[in-house]
Design a protein around this nucleic acid. Structure first.
Length: 692
DNA sequence: GCAAGGTC
């Protein structure tokens, strides 16, 4: 018998599901006009309110709610041929049991379920996972999809007044990515690790994003080593005018032939004649708003690694100081009120005064970046901050974000550049000056500002005294190694990883001992793993694997091809790779082992000039450093037993022993010289004690 | 103990 109250509105319950707590809170607040209440303690992400007499529950997930994995019987690495993973079935499991049960409990009572995850492919996938879970407990509910591109009242109301259907094809495209990443990554990781007997924590990994990223670093190192430096000569002179001196460089900048350079050099007279003076004014535009990549690059320039910068930014975000830090967008949305943002940071330490100044403007003309998307607004401060409330690193990041935001609303700077061409003997010289004449945004955003290079006031026809002249031998420079910031930029350019994962990828490569140092260099192990992948599993070593996958995913979205087709094809090509790789297993293992051995060389023995290597004591199995000239030389040093040891290529100026870096998971890397008796070390320990 | 992608 139908319940007589079935159509009574109070019995209807709407369930809204978002991808993160922040979105749930905002949506509940907007739709309820501020009346929504949090249910289940301060750390819960369930919000309840009523709307047109319906009860509404809004629940915030924490990213993906399901994870994909191999069935249990594939768990033990040693007992399964890695090649077997290529064809293995995949299973989906709840990623967070407690969230799944809360979700199901709410779904049971709901008549309408609205999926309001992020408006992107992964958001659609999370949505499909949610729908499947809810359908297990409630087959009668109606499902909708709310799509919004910002957590603003207009966008949110618009999305909920105009509900759509879940795009299952888009979700399947995400599922294809998940499957392919797991199949390729896990099978190749296990193959490399098993072939070289590196199991446990020392495993060797491979993946669609990490391997091409490692290859970038390895390739750059190869380029650097392959550069045959060309010698050239450069002439310069120091000139004087009214007591002020400046230097000028001869044209051409590079003399390839020494005799020619010498002849030119010898022709330089005691005086130089000013042939021309050219002055130009130019504008320096304020920078574009921060998205994740440009933020991480800027932080990297301040010597804060992307991984740390991201950690701090997430912390500042969760405490309300800055906006959501994972964004692609570099254009402020219309809905952002600059005036109220400026007002909310005007009491900040250091940067508040700049906000005050900007508030005097009648309207704002913010800069725009090239990337415009609708995910989130560019990173900006959301409330004032006091230095004393934050750690020094937190303050550094807050200040960077706040200054950048203020800079995007500030006036351009103006600079005057001067180019002076002079002649002395047979040689023409050029001197350049650059002077900021209007500071504009540079006052609030001085990062990376170039120093003024001032030239004295010179006019055409002047005759200046040559007070010094030089002929210098120089060498062409190899391309520079990547900084972490530059590597993130390069990854973005190549489409590798996402705003949320790029910094973690680099962190991974560092923690696994594939890369090290700043700027980044590959370890011998990283180089040999990359070489092995390039030779035997090349697709995973190139950015094209990602771009090809993107194309296939687009076809899934268009309904031209199915998830199974794409994953099936992918399995087929991986299986071909495996059959060849298994034949060459010993050869691959050999190459990588040589690389690993290469990394045990820590430097030069300060006593005999031999090689200091990491060794393992036969009896205690403990590692230590020993000299390659043993038993002639019996220099040994102890080593920390945990963590990765990497040579820094430097020696301690006090004891002459090599300096190494110790990397322990979860800790900050630290550097020490090998000699525990080193006087410098004792001194520094002493000062540290004093501080306490 | 594998990947990459979300988020805390």
């Amino acid at each position: 018998m139908p319940c007589p109250f079935a159509s009574y509105k109070l019995l209807a319950m709407k369930l809204i599901i978002t991808e993160k707590n922040q979105a749930a809170q905002r949506i509940a607040s907007i739709l309820s006009k501020g009346t929504a209440k949090r249910e289940g303690g301060p750390r819960s992400s369930l919000y309840v309110f009523s709307d047109d007499s319906d009860e509404v529950k809004c629940i915030g997930l924490r990213g993906h709610i399901m994870k994909v994995d191999f069935p249990d019987e594939y768990k033990r690495w040693e007992e399964i041929e890695p090649g077997a993973l290529v064809e293995a079935e995949l299973v989906k499991q709840p990623a967070q049991e407690s969230l799944v049960s809360t979700l199901k409990k709410c779904a049971k009572a709901a008549s309408v379920i609205i999926i309001a995850t992020d408006y992107d492919r992964e958001g659609e996938l999370i949505g499909l996972d949610v729908k499947r879970l809810c359908q297990e407990v409630n087959s009668n509910a109606r499902y909708f999809r709310a799509r919004f591109s910002a957590l603003t009242p207009d966008e949110i109301r618009g999305a909920f007044e105009n509900l759509k259907e879940l795009d299952e094809n888009l979700a399947m495209a995400g599922e294809a990515r998940q499957d392919i990443d797991l199949i390729w990554g896990a099978s190749l990781t296990r193959f490399l690790s098993l072939a070289t007997s590196r199991l446990g924590q020392r495993f060797l990994s491979a993946g669609r994003v990490q391997s091409p990223t490692l290859a970038l670093v390895v390739e750059r190192e190869k380029e650097i080593q392959n550069v045959v430096p060309e010698t050239y000569w450069q002439l310069s002179a120091v000139l004087e005018h009214d007591g002020a001196t400046f230097s000028a460089v001869a044209i051409p900048k590079e003399f390839k032939d020494y005799e020619e350079a010498k002849r030119a050099f010898e022709s330089i007279e005691d005086y130089a004649f000013v042939k021309s003076v050219e002055k130009r004014e130019r504008q320096i535009k304020p920078p574009a708003p921060f998205n994740t990549t440009s933020f991480l690059t800027a932080a990297s320039n301040l010597k804060v690694s992307p991984a740390r910068a991201m950690n701090v930014a997430e912390d500042l975000y969760s405490r309300g100081y800055i906006s959501y830090p994972r964004v692609d967008n570099t254009v402020y949305p219309e809905s952002l009120s600059f005036r109220s943002l400026l007002e909310s940071i005007r009491d900040s330490d250091v940067v508040g005064v700049f906000a005050d100044e900007l508030l005097k403007l009648r309207f704002f003309k913010p800069t725009r970046g090239r990337k415009e998307s609708t995910d989130h607004p560019p990173i900006h401060p959301t409330s004032k901050a006091k230095k004393e409330d934050l750690s020094s690193l937190q303050w550094k990041i807050y200040e960077l974000v706040a200054r950048r935001f203020l800079a995007t609303l500030s006036k351009e700077a103006r600079a005057r550049s001067t180019k002076v061409v002079l002649k002395s003997g047979a040689v023409e010289f050029v001197a350049r000056g650059d002077l900021t004449i209007e500071e504009g945004f540079l006052r609030v955003y001085p990062y990376g500002r170039k120093k003024d290079e001032e030239l004295p006031d010179i006019s055409e026809g002047d005759v200046l005294k040559v007070v010094d002249k030089k002929i210098e031998e120089k060498k062409t420079q190899p391309p520079p190694r990547y900084s972490e910031g530059k590597l993130i930029e390069k990854m973005e350019e190549l489409g590798l990883g996402t705003k949320s994962t790029r910094h973690t990828m680099i962190q991974n490569l560092l923690e696994r001992g594939y890369i090290f140092g700043s700027p980044i260099r590959p370890s011998e192990m990283g180089t040999s793993v990359s070489a092995a992948l390039r030779k035997h599993a090349n697709p995973i070593n190139t950015p094209e694997m990602t771009s090809n996958l993107e194309r296939e995913m687009d076809r899934i979205v268009e309904g031209e091809i199915s998830l199974d087709d794409v994953v099936g094809e992918s399995r087929k090509s991986l299986s071909e790779i495996f059959s060849l790789m298994e034949e060459r297993k010993e050869e691959i293992a050999q190459t990588i082992r040589e690389g690993v051995r290469g990394d045990t060389v820590l430097g030069i023995c300060p006593a005999c000039g031999g090689e200091l290597r990491i060794r393992v004591a036969r009896s205690s199995k403990k590692r230590f450093v020993g000299c390659s000239s043993y038993p002639q030389c019996n220099v040994t040093f102890p080593l920390p037993q945990k963590g990765m040891i990497q040579p820094m290529g430097e020696t301690c100026d006090a004891c002459g022993s090599p300096i190494v870096r110790v990397i322990t998971k979860g800790k900050r890397p630290w550097e020490i010289c090998l000699d525990p008796e080193c006087t410098k070390k004792k001194a520094s320990v002493g000062t540290r004690k004093k501080k306490k």
